[in-house]
Simulated assay, not measured.
Amino acid sequence: MVVSLVVGALWAMLPAYVPNNAAVLAGGGRPIDAGRTLGNRRLLGAGKTWRGTVVGTLTGTLLALALNAVNDPLSAVVGVELARFPLRVGFSLAFGAMAGDVGASFLKRRTGRERGAAFPGVDQLDFVVGALALTLLVAPAWFAATFTPPRLVVVVVATPLLHVLTNVGAYLLGLKTEPW
């Protein structure tokens, strides 16, 4: 029961978990804020780029479609009914994750944090809030059927742990300049 709950929750979030990692790998390009400031601080910072946002969104959306392709055989192997992702859901999870991260960058700048500075809680859940909120707006019936309250609890508890592990791994591989 617990294993199927965790597997189902993490599966449903995969299209939201991958985009920010893909954006880091794609990196560079024109910043979304084009260098603009609000007061004396950048709106978002140089780390939020159009290329990263597009690559992250496409990667998450394509991952959702790939997960659909392996859904039936994998569901049989793990013994859990895994979510299927309509195209609009794959896109909303992926783009919502990217938008949540951009929103957190805006909050960081407004609270005086520089690029790469830790913002505990926000750093770990910004993309989750963005992905879930956009998906709820785009596909409310799918959202309600997939993200039951127990699954939402798993997502909120497991995501910070996964976030820390993946960021430390990216830092150790030299893909990030800070381990958070």
Score class of each variant (00 low, 15 high):
Met1His: 15
Leu38Met: 07
Gly27Leu: 07
Gly29Gln: 07
Ala16Gln: 14
Leu38Tyr: 07
Thr37Pro: 01
Thr37His: 11
Ala22Ile: 10
Val2Ile: 14
Val2Cys: 00
Ala9Tyr: 07
Trp11Gly: 14
Ala16Thr: 11
Arg30Gln: 06
Asn21Met: 07
Ala46Gly: 15
Leu10Gln: 13
Val18Asn: 00
Gly27Gln: 13
Gly28Cys: 06
Asn20Ala: 05
Asp33Ala: 01
Gly28Leu: 05
Met1Ser: 15
Ala16Lys: 12
Met13Glu: 02
Arg41Tyr: 00
Gly28Ile: 10
Leu25Lys: 06
Tyr17Arg: 01
Met13Gln: 13
Leu43Val: 15
Gly35Trp: 04
Leu25Glu: 03
Val2Trp: 14
Gly29His: 06
Gly39Gln: 03
Ala23Tyr: 04
Ala22Asn: 08
Gly35Val: 02
Asn20Arg: 04
Leu10Asn: 06
Gly28Val: 08
Leu10Arg: 04
Leu44Arg: 12
Arg42Trp: 01
Asn20Thr: 02
Gly39Ile: 00
Met13His: 10
Val2Arg: 10
Ala46Leu: 12
Arg36Ala: 05
Leu10His: 07
Arg41Thr: 01
Gly28Ala: 06
Ala26Lys: 09
Val18Phe: 14
Arg42Ala: 11
Met1Cys: 04
Gly27Thr: 03
Tyr17Cys: 06
Arg36Cys: 00
Asp33Gln: 06
Gly28Glu: 09
Gly27Tyr: 05
Pro31Gln: 07
Met1Trp: 12
Ile32Tyr: 05
Gly27Trp: 11
Arg41Ile: 00
Val7Tyr: 04
Met1Leu: 09
Thr37Arg: 15
Gly45Thr: 07
Gly35Thr: 02
Pro31Asp: 01
Ala9Leu: 11
Pro15Leu: 07
Pro15Ser: 03
Ile32Met: 09
Val6Ala: 14
Ala34Ile: 00
